[in-house]
């Protein structure tokens, strides 16, 4: 019994760690910047495929790819926001109008990024094996790369949490999430902060992509699946609550794992049932106000 519980809990945390990273990224982009970024999953895909190429062509370890893909995607995300979304935001009459137009724009981004990836990597299914040894934790057996992924996810989340609560920029981000207008009045350079948020969102997606590539096969069209999970987690955690998304990710992973233990066929259904129940009972999410 103890073994079964351990199995389910660690298994859930592994999946949850990935979900948390993805969701924090989207939460930064949507919760703070109001960009419901449908192309979020494409940044995950870019992270995954870059890692694949770096590993299979140049022999660069995926763990080092974390340090490469993260910053590169941050810059890409930052530039996309400074050009595309800032333009849309300035043009929009209200913040709701911006949310609508940014949704459509990110749809466009989705197709652009996906098709560029199809040209570069072709449509074939790809994968590689990395650290796929069996690791034994008190009798429960896991794949090495999954435990590394969990560890990485936890470390990244903690670093990010400290950055958010302790650093000046982190405080500016939280202020912008609370109330962008007041934050701007009080001297926060709102456009810069929003672009940084979008960049950080892309960075988180990229890091998640690197970890995902160690565990799953990939194809250029894999992104949307993760975007949907991210949306569920963001709603679960509470819109605009970055901590909520972090914890929400782990909760969803655990729920999935528990349901899979009893009946694997019901695991995805469980996600959507939770999603719908939450919208009906507490639309603001667990940590939302």
């Amino acid at each position: 019994m103890f073994l079964a519980v351990l199995d389910v809990v660690i298994g859930g945390l592994i999946t949850g760690g990935i979900y948390a990273l993805i969701a924090v990224g989207l939460s930064l982009q949507y919760g703070v910047g109001r960009v419901l970024n449908i192309s979020h999953g494409e940044f995950i895909m870019i992270g995954a495929f870059s890692t694949y190429s770096l590993y299979t062509v140049f022999g660069i370890s995926p763990l080092i790819s974390l340090a490469i893909c993260g910053p590169v995607l941050f810059v890409i995300g930052y530039l996309i926001h400074r050009t595309l979304f800032e333009f849309l935001r300035n043009k929009s009459e209200s913040i709701d109008a911006f949310a609508d137009s940014s949704l459509l724009a990110s749809f466009g981004l989705l197709f652009i990024i996906q098709n560029i990836a199809l040209i570069i990597w072709k449509a074939d299914i790809r994968g590689y094996s990395y650290l796929d040894f069996s690791a034994n934790i008190l009798g429960a057996v896991f794949v090495g790369n999954r435990l590394i992924a969990l560890l990485s996810a936890v470390v990244i989340s903690l670093v990010f949490y400290i950055f958010l609560t302790r650093s000046r920029l982190g405080k500016a981000i939280r202020a912008a999430a609370e109330d962008p207008v007041t934050a701007q009045v009080l001297g926060v350079k709102i456009h810069r902060v929003l672009a940084i948020c979008f960049g950080l969102g892309a960075l988180m997606a990229g890091l998640a992509g690197v970890l995902i590539s160690m565990m799953y096969e990939m194809q250029p069209t894999m992104g949307l699946e993760y975007t949907i999970i991210a949306i569920i987690v963001v709603v679960l955690g509470g819109l605009g609550s970055i901590t909520g998304s972090l914890i929400g990710g782990f909760i969803l992973g655990l729920i999935g794992s528990i349901v899979t233990y009893f009946d694997a066929g019901l695991s995805l259904i469980a996600y959507y049932i939770i999603f719908i129940l939450l919208l009906l009972i507490k639309p603001t999410g667990i940590f939302g106000k």
Partner: peptide, 8 residues
């Protein structure tokens, strides 16, 4: 059975 899109 297991659903399409299962991750673990």
């Amino acid at each position: 059975s297991y659903p399409m899109g299962a991750k673990d």
